Amino acid sequence: MADKITEACPVYAPFFGAMGCTAAIVLTCMGASYGTAKSGVGVTAMGVLRPDLIVKSIIPVVMAGIIGIYGLVVSVLISDGLQQAVPLYTSFVQFGAGLAVGLAGLAAGFAIGIVGDAGVRGTAQQPRLYVGMILILIFAEVLGLYGLIVALLMNSKATLNASC
């Protein structure tokens, strides 16, 4: 093992890959939990006035949960490439991939939570707002999808011409 420790493959290199794996799941779950909580409060408040719309109004909660799945996918893919002797290049790319999906998921979760809360409350008062809320939620969700796509592309390049 000691013969694989070089300048291109230092002993601390796996740390960055592990942190990318951690950032992917932790940050996306933070976004998903915020989106779920904020939207859930709106659904609960709306359900007091219009209990017949509760099932129709849980769409933001479902969309927030999907953000966490993006982080899970990237985290599993990064963890598959973790090893004791890893090139610094590979671990930095894994770290970047984790941050890409994690921060995008965090932003998407915040957007979904805020739009979901206001949207379901508004829909209770004016049902024609529902389609507009769904469209805005789709645009918020796609922010997390962008992070997933970038992270997948980055992770696929992590081992390109890199060896210890």
Rank of each mutant, 00 (worst) to 15 (best):
L135M: 09
K157P: 00
A158T: 03
A108W: 06
Q126M: 14
G102H: 03
V131Q: 04
Y130M: 13
L106P: 08
L137N: 00
G147E: 04
Q126S: 15
R121S: 02
V101W: 01
L106W: 09
Q126F: 14
M154Y: 13
I138T: 08
G113S: 07
L152I: 05
I149F: 05
L148I: 08
E141A: 10
P127F: 02
I134E: 00
G144E: 07
R128G: 07
T123M: 09
I134S: 10
V131W: 01
G132L: 01
P127I: 03
G122Y: 01
V142F: 15
L103N: 06
P127Y: 02
M133S: 11
V101Q: 00
V115T: 12
G119H: 00
Q125P: 12
R121F: 05
G132D: 10
V120M: 10
Q126E: 13
G144K: 02
A158R: 00
A118P: 08
R121M: 12
L153P: 02
G105W: 09
F110E: 10
A118V: 13
L106E: 15
R128H: 07
A107S: 14
A107W: 06
T123Y: 12
L129Y: 07
M133A: 09
A104I: 02
T159F: 01
I112L: 06
V115Q: 15
A108I: 02
I138G: 06
T159S: 05
Q125E: 15
L129T: 14
G109C: 04
V142N: 00
S156V: 08
V150P: 07
V150N: 08
L137G: 01
V150D: 12
L148H: 10
I134V: 15
M133T: 14
A140Q: 01
V131F: 03
I134F: 14
N161V: 13
L145A: 15
G102S: 04
D117S: 15
A140F: 01
V150L: 13
A107V: 15
L145W: 07
V115K: 13
L153D: 11
G102A: 05
G132C: 06
L129G: 06
Y146S: 15
L152D: 10
Y146T: 06
G113T: 03
P127R: 11
S156A: 14
A140W: 00
A118D: 09
N155G: 15
A118I: 11
I112C: 03
T159K: 01
V150I: 15
G147F: 12
L135P: 07
R121Q: 11
V115C: 09
V101L: 04
G144D: 06
L137A: 02
Y146L: 12
R121N: 06
G113L: 07
L106M: 14
G113I: 05
A108C: 06
A124Y: 13
I134P: 00
K157S: 09
L137Q: 03
E141T: 05
V115W: 00
T123F: 08
P127G: 13
G116W: 03
A104G: 04
G105S: 08
N161D: 15
I134T: 05
T159R: 01
V115L: 11
G132S: 07
